[in-house]
């Protein structure tokens, strides 16, 4: 068990190092660098002509003229040692200040989305498998196919459209107007909860569809297993039997794909955020990519990936806890 965990942890560390290299490469990719954009922004419209020498001077003061590997070490060092993600150019402040509490908003949104995904897909998947071949099963299958085919951002638009029609109100955003800029309070938190269901539903949409199909397939397999027949042959009541034997094993593929689901949710986050007007990391990521504010974008990309890697680890832990064959290295 310990060896299993240690192995996973080492693998996770190596992955994170490689991820940081890759994110840094993406940050370096757009033509021009921080100094160019900083100079352009600072002096544009002021009538001052900027020369190459000015830019070079800025570059030198910021240490951006040093070779890439050194700058990479600086960047990673800042993050690991001081939790400092560098400077954002668009707002002339630090990346940390911009990202700030949006991290918690995003994590909260992720958590609600995940809970919603599993709370819906696991029971429905199990139900569809038990009722296999009936009209209910057929209907659920069709729905889950649609879920896979309708991209989340289009679903968001459709939902907004109908909300607009039926309630005549805008349901986008994470907060009501009164609370958008207000300091945190119990009332603001409640306001957030009231707004959270729509983005959570939209983000959970395709993960839900995917998991319903997975749970249904595994559950169908498990239902035919000899261990289930054997349990029935010892007189176990049907409901207890279903929950204790096949349903328990049908959880395995769900648990092992938690990281994958988080990846899927984060992948769709920026675009859904743009459509629904969510003011959190996804929205900020998209904006900073459009503005080429690569320090902010890189920081967010790295954070999202760290969460995914972390969730992969959690999923490994849960899997080991659920399945003795993995735990005991069988």
């Amino acid at each position: 068990m310990l060896r299993f965990l240690a192995g996973r942890a080492v693998g996770m560390a190596v992955t994170l190092v490689l991820v940081s290299v890759m994110v840094f490469a993406i940050m370096e990719l757009p033509p021009g660098d921080y100094a160019d954009r900083y100079a352009f922004r600072k002096y544009s419209g002021t009538g001052v002509t900027i020369t190459e020498a000015d830019v070079a001077a800025i570059r030198h003061t910021l240490g951006l003229d040093r070779p890439a590997p050194l700058r990479y070490l600086d960047w990673v060092g800042g993050i690991v040692l001081h939790g400092d993600f560098g400077k954002a150019y668009a707002f002339e402040t630090s990346v940390n200040a911009i990202i700030g509490q949006k991290v918690w908003l995003t994590l909260g949104l992720l958590f609600v989305t995940l809970v919603l995904t599993y709370a819906v897909s696991i029971p429905i998947g199990i139900y569809a498998a038990v009722r296999r071949g009936t009209a209910t099963d057929y209907g659920l299958t069709v729905l889950s196919y649609l879920g896979l085919a309708l991209p989340n951002f289009l679903l968001a638009l459709v939902l907004l459209y109908f909300a607009n029609r039926w309630f005549g109100a805008s349901v986008g955003g994470l907060f009501g107007q009164a609370y958008e800029k207000a300091p945190w309070s119990a009332a603001k938190l409640w306001d957030l909860v009231k707004h959270l269901w729509l983005p959570a539903l939209v983000l959970a949409w395709s993960a839900m569809a995917y998991q319903i199909q997975t749970v249904r397939a595994t559950m169908s397999d498990e239902l035919g297993k000899l261990s289930v027949i054997a349990a029935r042959a010892r007189g176990l009541p049907e409901m207890r039997l279903l929950l204790k034997y096949p349903a328990r094993l049908a959880l395995n593929p769900v648990v092992s794909t938690i990281g994958f689901d988080v990846n899927r949710i984060f992948s769709e986050l920026p675009i859904v955020a743009a459509v629904l007007g969510l003011t959190e990391l996804g929205d900020l990521l998209l904006k900073s990519f459009l503005d080429l504010d690569m320090n902010v974008a890189g920081a967010i990309l790295l954070l999202l990936t760290v969460v995914i890697v972390g969730m992969n680890f959690v999923s490994d832990l849960l899997l080991a806890w659920l399945d003795p064959r993995i735990r005991l290295g069988g």
Partner: peptide
């Protein structure tokens, strides 16, 4: 009555000893 019959009155063992136990319980 059927549940009492299964196991309590008539026990059954199967060909595959591996598959007739669930792997996740002792």
């Amino acid at each position: 009555a059927l549940r009492r019959l299964r196991g309590g009155e008539i026990g059954m063992i199967f060909q595959e000893p591996m598959a007739s136990f669930s792997p996740v319980y002792t």
